[in-house]
C-alpha cells in the first residue's frame, strides 16, 4: 500500500489533536507517514505512533521555525517527489491553506479544501457554503492534496510502531522571503476589526446576566457585544450592538450567547469565519449558521465553559489521550 503524507503539527511536547485526526483519515487511504518540522521527542513520537504513523520524517533546520510556511512547502514537495505518496493531508487553517495551495501548484496536483470526510479513492466530502451543501469530489490529476477541517473528524487510535527517518531538505533562498518581525498580544478595541467576539442576546436575561458575556470575552481575549435586544434592554451600550444598524463584524470567531438569530442580526455576523452558539432552544435560527451549537441554559453552560478554559490554560500541552 502506498504511503500517505500527513503534515504534523507539533508544539513543545504535544502533538495537536488535528494531527491525530489527519492520521485517522490517512489510514483509510494507505500507510500514514508524519512529516514533522523539528526534532522528534519520545512523547510526540509515541502519540504519532498511537494514531497509526508508520514512518516519521523529521526535518530539523532553522528555516522550519523561522519560515514555517515556506519551509513546509519545500518539505512536502521534496518528500512527495521522492516517495510518490497516494495523498497529502494538511489541516485547514491560515498556514495550512497557503501551504496546500503552493504544494498543489508545485506538484501540478488537485487540491480539495474544506474536507470533512474521506473514503478510499480518495473521494472526499466537502462542507461548502457553511454546510448548506455536502459536495463529493475527487482529484483526477497528480497527488491528491486534501485540506481537512479536522474538527469534524472523530479521532480513532490504531497503534503502530513508527520508524523515525530524518530527512534533509534543501532550502532555496526563497523560503526566507517572508519574515515574522513581531508577535504580540493585543487587546482589540473595535468590534469591526476584532478577531474574537462574544455576543449576548435576550437569553442572557438581565444586565447582571450580561456579565457572563464580558467574562467569556475576556477569557478568550475577545470583545463583548450585544444583539439588538440586549442593547434595547440597556444591558450593553449601543456601540456594542451587532446588527444591520449597529456594527457589521467579520471576526475569526463569533460566539453567540442566548441570541436566537433574527435576520437583522444574522446579516451583520454571517461573515464570521467560525460561529459558535449557545442557546436553550434547539430550533433557534442561529444554529443554522453555526459550526457548533451548544443547547442549554446560558447561565449554566457559560460558567462551566469559562472554568474549562481556565483549567486548560493552567495546564497547556495536553497530549491527546
Amino acid at each position: 500500500m502506498a504511503e500517505v503524507l500527513v503534515l504534523a503539527e507539533q508544539g513543545g511536547t504535544s502533538v495537536h489533536r488535528a494531527t491525530c485526526a489527519l492520521l485517522t483519515l490517512a489510514r483509510r487511504l494507505g500507510v500514514p507517514a508524519a512529516v514533522v518540522g523539528g526534532s522528534p521527542d519520545p512523547a510526540g513520537t509515541a502519540v504519532l505512533g498511537r494514531f497509526g504513523a508508520r514512518t516519521i520524517y523529521p526535518v530539523t533546520a532553522a528555516e522550519v521555525d523561522e519560515h514555517p510556511v515556506a519551509a513546509r512547502v519545500e518539505m512536502l514537495v521534496h518528500l512527495a517527489r521522492r516517495n510518490r505518496p497516494a495523498a497529502i493531508l494538511i489541516a485547514s487553517g491560515r498556514d495550512g491553506l497557503e501551504i496546500a495551495g503552493r504544494v498543489a501548484v508545485r506538484l501540478d496536483s488537485g487540491l480539495l479544501s474544506d474536507v470533512i470526510d474521506v473514503t478510499d479513492g480518495p473521494v472526499v466530502v466537502q462542507s461548502v457554503q457553511g454546510g448548506a451543501y455536502r459536495v463529493e469530489s475527487s482529484v483526477v490529476r497528480g497527488i491528491p492534496i486534501l485540506a481537512v477541517r479536522t474538527e469534524y473528524v472523530t479521532v480513532v487510535p490504531a497503534p503502530a510502531k513508527p520508524r523515525v527517518s530524518p530527512v534533509r531538505v534543501p532550502f532555496p533562498d526563497r523560503v526566507r522571503a517572508v519574515r515574522m518581525i513581531a508577535r504580540d498580544r493585543t487587546r482589540p478595541r473595535e468590534l469591526s476589526t476584532a478577531a474574537v467576539i462574544v455576543a449576548g442576546g435576550r437569553g442572557v436575561g438581565s444586565r447582571a446576566g450580561f456579565e457572563l458575556v464580558r467574562q467569556l470575552a475576556a477569557a478568550l481575549d475577545g470583545l463583548p457585544a450585544g444583539s439588538h435586544a440586549a442593547a434595547e434592554q440597556g444591558w450593553c451600550p449601543p456601540e456594542m450592538q451587532v446588527d444591520q444598524v449597529g456594527t457589521i463584524v467579520h471576526p475569526s470567531l463569533y460566539l453567540a450567547l442566548g441570541i436566537s438569530g433574527s435576520m437583522r442580526h444574522r446579516t451583520a455576523m454571517r461573515g464570521a469565519a467560525t460561529i459558535v452558539a449557545i442557546d436553550s432552544d434547539p430550533q433557534a435560527p442561529i444554529f443554522q449558521l453555526s459550526d457548533l451549537g451548544g443547547v442549554g441554559d446560558v447561565h449554566k453552560v457559560v460558567p462551566e465553559l469559562i472554568a474549562e478554559i481556565e483549567r486548560r490554560r493552567a495546564q497547556p500541552r495536553i497530549v491527546e489521550g
Partner: peptide, 28 residues
C-alpha cells in the same frame, strides 16, 4: 485537476449533522 461528483443540499441549511451538543451543561 479536481472534479465535483455530487452536490447535495442539506436540509435547513445546517452546517453539519452533529453540530448540536446537548445534555448536561458540563458536557456541553
Amino acid at each position: 485537476a479536481s472534479i465535483v461528483r455530487a452536490a447535495t443540499p442539506r436540509r435547513g441549511g445546517r452546517r453539519d449533522c452533529d453540530v448540536l451538543a446537548m445534555g448536561p451543561p458540563a458536557g456541553v
